[in-house]
C-alpha cells in the first residue's frame, strides 16, 4: 500500500468529499489564500474557489455559529479551528447550539457539521496553546468525537465525519501532521466507522489503550518491553472517544487481566477515567491489578523544555505503569 503523511491523508479526505458533494465547504482562518496554517487545506482554494474555501476573520464564535446555522438549513460545513485551543471562545456555539439543536427541536433540525483542527501540545508553546481538548467535548451528548492517530484513520474517519448528519469534533494530532503511514488509494473510498477501535499490536500480558500523539509513544514502549522484558501488550487505539468501543476494550482486558490507559489530556475527569469505570464495572472479575492511567501531569503546561517533557506522558512513566500492573517492576 502507498504511504502518505497524516496531513496529506486529511487533505485527500477534504478533496474527495468536496468533489462528491457541493454542499460541503471549508471555513476558517487562513484556510484559503494562505493554504492553511498547517497546510492541511493546501490546494483547496485553487480547485474549489472562494465560494467553498472561505477565509474568515479571527472570530471563532462567529464563524462556528455561521457554520452551525448553515448546517441547520441544509449545508454540510467543515469549520477549521487553527488550533483547538481557540475553540474555547466558540465553546458556547458548540455546546449550546450544535450539540443541542437536534434534541431541543424534538428531532426536527439536524446539524451536520465537522469542527476540525490540531489538538494537543506542540513544542514549547506554553500553557494557552497546549490543550488537549477531548475531555471537554467527549463529555457532551449530541457530539461525536474522533481522535485519529494514523494517516489511514485520519482519512477514513474524516470522510465518515463529513458524511454524518450530526456535529462532529475532529481532533487532529498537532505533532502528527508529518507522520507517514499506509493509506488505501482514493478509488477505495475507505470510510472508517466511529466507535470501532483498532488493535495495533497483540499481546497477552497487558492491555495498553492510547490515542493521538501519545499513542505512538505507548506503542514504542510496548515494542521495547516485549524485547527487553518479555512483556507483551495488547495495544488498542480507540480511534473515537464518543463513542468508545467498549467491546474491544473489554475483550482485551478479559484476555490480559491488566490495563494501562495513556493519554495526553489531564487525568482528572478525563476519558481515561471513563474507561476505568467501564472496566471495573464490566470486567471486575477479570482484573489482576488496579487499572492505571498515564496522562499529562496535573499542571498548566510550562514553557521550559525540560519541564514540558516531564508533563507529557513520558516513555518512562508508561513503562513504570505497565511494569506495576504486570508485577514486573525492576528491582
Amino acid at each position: 500500500m502507498r504511504e502518505i503523511t497524516y496531513r496529506e491523508a486529511l487533505r485527500e479526505a477534504l478533496f474527495e468529499e468536496m468533489r462528491r458533494d457541493d454542499r460541503v465547504f471549508l471555513m476558517g482562518e487562513e484556510v484559503g489564500h494562505y493554504d492553511g496554517a498547517y497546510k492541511v487545506s493546501q490546494g483547496l482554494l485553487a480547485e474549489f474557489g472562494e465560494r467553498r474555501v472561505i477565509d474568515t476573520p479571527i472570530a471563532e464564535a462567529g464563524f462556528a455559529g455561521i457554520g452551525i446555522g448553515a448546517a441547520m438549513t441544509g449545508l454540510r460545513p467543515i469549520v477549521e479551528f487553527m488550533s483547538w485551543n481557540f475553540s474555547f471562545v466558540a465553546f458556547d456555539q458548540i455546546i449550546s447550539n450544535a450539540s443541542k439543536t437536534y434534541s431541543m427541536s424534538g428531532g426536527k433540525i439536524k446539524v451536520p457539521i465537522v469542527f476540525r483542527g490540531p489538538n494537543g501540545a506542540a513544542a514549547q508553546v506554553a500553557a494557552q496553546h497546549s490543550h488537549t481538548v477531548e475531555a471537554f467535548y467527549a463529555h457532551i451528548p449530541g457530539l461525536w468525537v474522533a481522535n485519529p492517530s494514523t494517516p489511514r484513520d485520519a482519512k477514513g474517519l474524516l470522510k465518515a465525519a463529513i458524511r454524518m448528519d450530526d456535529p462532529v469534533v475532529f481532533l487532529e494530532g498537532e505533532t502528527l501532521y508529518n507522520l507517514k503511514g499506509e493509506v488505501p488509494d482514493a478509488s477505495e473510498d475507505e470510510i472508517i466507522p466511529f466507535g470501532k477501535a483498532r488493535i495495533a499490536r497483540e499481546g497477552k500480558d497487558c492491555t495498553l489503550i492510547a490515542w493521538g500523539a501519545p499513542f505512538h509513544t505507548a506503542l514504542a514502549v510496548a515494542d521495547r518491553l516485549a524485547k527487553e522484558a518479555g512483556i507483551e501488550c495488547d495495544v488498542i487505539d480507540p480511534r473515537t472517544l464518543r463513542p468508545i468501543d467498549e467491546t474491544a476494550i473489554l475483550e482485551s482486558v478479559a484476555k490480559t487481566n491488566r490495563c494501562v490507559i495513556v493519554h495526553e489530556t489531564w487525568p482528572y475527569g478525563g476519558p481515561g477515567a471513563e474507561m476505568v469505570d467501564l472496566i471495573q464495572r464490566e470486567a471486575f472479575d477479570y482484573l489482576d491489578a488496579p487499572v492505571l492511567r498515564v496522562g499529562s501531569l496535573d499542571v498548566p503546561m510550562p514553557y521550559a523544555k525540560n519541564l514540558e517533557s516531564l508533563v507529557l506522558p513520558t516513555p518512562e512513566r508508561i513503562e513504570t505503569a505497565i511494569r506495576r500492573v504486570t508485577y514486573r517492576e525492576e528491582r
Partner: peptide, 9 residues
C-alpha cells in the same frame, strides 16, 4: 451567528 449562517446558506 446561527441566523447569519442561515443567510450564508
Amino acid at each position: 451567528a446561527l441566523a447569519a449562517g442561515a443567510a450564508f446558506r
